[in-house]
Design a protein around this nucleic acid. Structure first.
Lengths: 344, 344
DNA sequence: ATGTCGTAGGTTATCGTTAACTTACGACTT
DNA sequence: AAGTCGTAAGTTAACGATAACCTACGACAT
């Protein structure tokens, strides 16, 4: 039963319209909304009624133009919206809404080998700046992102969710290096000495950090790394990695995320190798499904949703106070399950 | 090396500033951007240079205020950002960006039993209307959503991605009824007669449609349905359903989505029941991981990303032409894998 | 009686952009 | 020679909201 009429030709009521109906000036209605100044209780009631009767909603464009602030933030999501990115986005939207901010979003599923200075990224950021967003959050960027985004700071605070704890830019992150350490140490403590790493895309911070953790754990235990396999976070890339790996060459696997672990397990199964009987495997992300994989997948839990919440707090802080907050890091937690077992 | 200075106190250049630097009036610079009217080639070059020198970006708020159009769409995502919702969002952002539209997003992970007329939904829509979005897309809504959203049509086209093909509102959808039919018929054709359904949340359109397809397939084959189990799309709810189901009561399972199927398989495995040896199981969504589950999960493939693309085309159409497009339906496809086998 | 303060409200100017209108000039037509 | 057309600009007035400023009035203290 929805109206078929074109919505375009219905002009929306303005503050002046509300004021006229309530018998006051537009400025008084403005005071009603902003709370700056006095509005009598009886007048307030008449304005209430007028707003309801007209179905009035404030015009953010006019507000933003006059007030100089848009009450809007930009989110640039680089890469696919997998479990981690989607969870971050959930945290971002929830927290931003609570803080009274709107969220503009751009997602770029660009070639992992493309630099961040690509025209797509530039266009997305330009769109944000044109909308006069008061802050920008960038998720899952590349190693070189931080350098290329510096100039944007000139006009607006930009927070990077980089997977890189010691960034000298404004950043928050889950500590991917620690994740790599935790995962690899877990395998070492179970007695494994030939530990394979299936890494994410070559230029992603998360990949590099997790790989770094893997190498540090190995070398501090006096172990040699195996040649690193590289995927793109997807389960099919984990499967591909499994197909071209000699099952005799390793006793344990540290996969860059749960999905690649899933694919790897499937590939090994096709070749008659089962975890944890024939090898141990651990992922990263602890996505809710990991518990129900076969075998239940050991993983490193990352609180992505909280990262999203922290991110909003961090972008808003310079807006309100002019000062940055200290960079935040979320510490990952080991969640051991049946997929990792002591080496006999 | 990013600047530590507060960005707030740097006033952004305006059209007038650009014009002054280029030695023309603001209106000429406006023509440069809008393309309405003549701008000499030499003048154009000077404006080019001035824009680059000042780092000028158009102010969307002022544009929107004067032009009466915001070039922005709103997306209201109801429920968690699981694989389907995230894929839709990908399609939406990509297509909107290409069409020159910005996207405002609100995600509400509300109680599945709450009605859509909840204050949160209202507040989110109000925020969109305040931003003068030119159209709104609502994903994964409830049965009663369509009724409650009618009044919004008065001011702006609103498209519902409802899982309900024959909606009499403006809607696009993957045909969830057909998905239920396809899945259940597949099991029937394999010889199964006791087919269990694990449905999604009670008030979701997708749940109801898939359940409807299940019932239709059964009754047209002269079979009786088993009592429906109900989950919330999560793998853990599928697991819970598996724990409280008598393994002897069914020979096949149609799960409302892949994740619940995964959980159910895990629960059955704990009780010594393996698919496809002891029962067959099929999910819906065909998420990329499903291929690598153990056993590889039969599923119903839905092209969510294309749904997102179609959605943008459909919201934009009334904006441009004043007329609706016919409602679109995406047909799901059966993807049989090892988890479904002929009944011996 | 005068000054001061708190409350309630109106007037005016302005944010940056663009639609509508106007000016100016050279080229071409009749 | 006068009129018309295409090109290239400038001028003015809005869009809706609000900050800054001003008016008015009653209460209260001095």
């Amino acid at each position: 039963m929805a109206s078929e009429a074109s919505p375009r030709d219905v002009p929306r009521p303005s503050l002046t319209d509300v004021g006229r109906l309530a018998g006051v000036s537009a400025q008084t209605v403005s005071r009603y909304f902003t709370g700056r100044g006095y509005v009598g209780t009886e007048t307030r009631a008449r304005i209430d009624a007028a707003i309801a009767q007209l179905g009035y909603r404030p015009n953010n464009a006019a507000r933003s133009l006059r007030a100089g602030r848009s009450k809007t933030l930009g989110v640039l999501a680089l890469g696919p919206l997998n479990y981690g990115a989607a969870s971050i986005l959930t945290g971002l939207t929830q927290t931003a809404t609570t803080a009274g901010y709107g969220l503009m979003i751009a997602q770029l599923d660009i070639d992992p080998d493309l630099p961040t200075s690509s025209p797509e990224v530039r266009r997305a950021l330009d769109a944000f700046l044109s909308s006069r967003v008061e802050g920008i959050v960038v998720t899952s960027p590349y190693r070189d992102t931080e350098e290329n985004l510096g100039e944007v700071w000139e006009s607006v605070p930009i927070l990077i969710l980089s997977g890189r704890p010691q960034s000298n830019h404004y950043a928050a992150t889950v500590d991917s290096h620690a994740a790599g350490l935790l995962a690899t140490r877990h395998l070492i403590e179970l007695g494994h000495r030939q530990i394979l790493h299936i890494a994410g895309p070559a230029k992603r911070n998360e990949s590099l950090e997790r790989e770094g953790g893997y190498h540090e754990a190995l070398s501090s235990a006096g172990l040699d790394p195996l040649p690193v396999q590289r995927g793109d976070w997807s389960s099919s890339s984990g499967f591909a990695a499994g197909l071209c790996t000699d099952p005799a060459s390793f006793t344990a696997v540290f996969a860059g995320n749960d999905q690649m672990a899933l694919g790897f397990i499937a590939a090994m199964r096709e070749r008659g190798h089962e975890a944890p009987r024939d090898y141990s495997i651990i992922g990263v992300d602890d996505m809710p499904d990991a518990r129900y994989f076969s075998p239940p997948l050991s993983s490193i839990a990352m609180d992505f949703t909280r990262l999203g919440e922290i991110a909003i707090a961090m972008v808003l802080h310079p807006i309100k106070t002019g000062e940055r907050m200290p960079n935040q890091t979320i510490t990952p937690v080991l969640v051991p399950r049946a997929s990792t077992a002591r080496l006999p």
